[in-house]
Design a protein around this nucleic acid. Structure first.
Lengths: 138, 138
DNA sequence: GATGATCGTAAGCGTGTGTAGATGATCCGT
DNA sequence: ACGGATCATCTACACACGCTTACGATCATC
């Protein structure tokens, strides 16, 4: 009943996950935020930069630099929205999709290893509960 | 099978938890780190500042400011270690313990509310798995 | 006793982060 | 056609963070 608090547990686990993700992203030459942007891009459809900033939680002025670098490496494309030419529609290129797929596979394998020691039923419940909680607070 | 990644889920949930903790700590005039220090202090016994820094994960030079403020408000006491006077032994005062207890109760209530919607079995498994994972990666 | 190590403290550095204008292009309502 | 609003961008700023260095006090060892 008197377990450590959620915040402490979450932050500790989060640090662990990030530490394990870092070498994977380093190998692909990506920063954490680059990866978050690519992931958000793969899930949402033709977002404007403001929408992308909102969905990733990144500050919109900071997002610009990430997009600059990703665009220079041919992973994303910025094109003016034909419907409203003030907007820039960001899209994932085939190169970007390929890099993202590689990182995502490696990260999923890392996560599987991290969760391997859990009781299978607990693990399923953990993932279910975490997804529900994260989904609700959006 | 293709759920969002752990890192994203964790960071999202973490932001939610912190957002809910903030008003509680604000009411007590505490920063996040202050609260982490007080909590660590309640659990460990007569720690030196270096030990406290290690157990909280805070940089030892950054810890000083927190202790200064907590000490000025009468929540912690710093005394030279009689066994080795280079060390300063930090302890929780009765005032500090009282403030900590109040925050902790409020935060536990907040967490209970946050988790209330979960299936009871899932919730128990979630807490169990999270504790195990956080424990292992220490 | 002299030397080297350890602890708490202070100050500086580089980085990451959010905010606040200012600008140019563009859209919208009148 | 005009004025106000919106979007991406740039610049400057303040701030928190962790890391490094330096210093004085203290201990441990020879």
């Amino acid at each position: 009943m008197d377990r450590p608090e959620l915040g402490f547990l979450l932050s500790r686990l989060m640090r662990e996950v990030m530490a394990r993700e870092k070498p994977i992203l380093d190998a692909a030459g990506l920063e954490m935020w680059d990866y978050a942007v690519l992931t958000a891009l793969a899930e949402s459809d033709a977002p404007t930069q403001a929408q992308l900033a909102a969905s990733t939680g990144r500050d919109k002025t900071r997002l610009i630099g990430n997009l600059d670098r990703l665009e220079a490496r041919g992973m994303v494309a910025r094109e003016p929205d034909p419907a409203d030419r003030r907007n820039r529609i960001v899209s994932l290129t085939s190169v970007g999709a390929k890099v993202l797929r590689g990182c995502r596979d490696a990260i999923e394998a890392m996560e599987a290893e991290l969760l391997a020691d859990l009781d299978p039923a607990d693990r399923a419940a953990f993932e279910r509960a975490l997804t529900a909680l994260a989904e609700r607070s959006r």
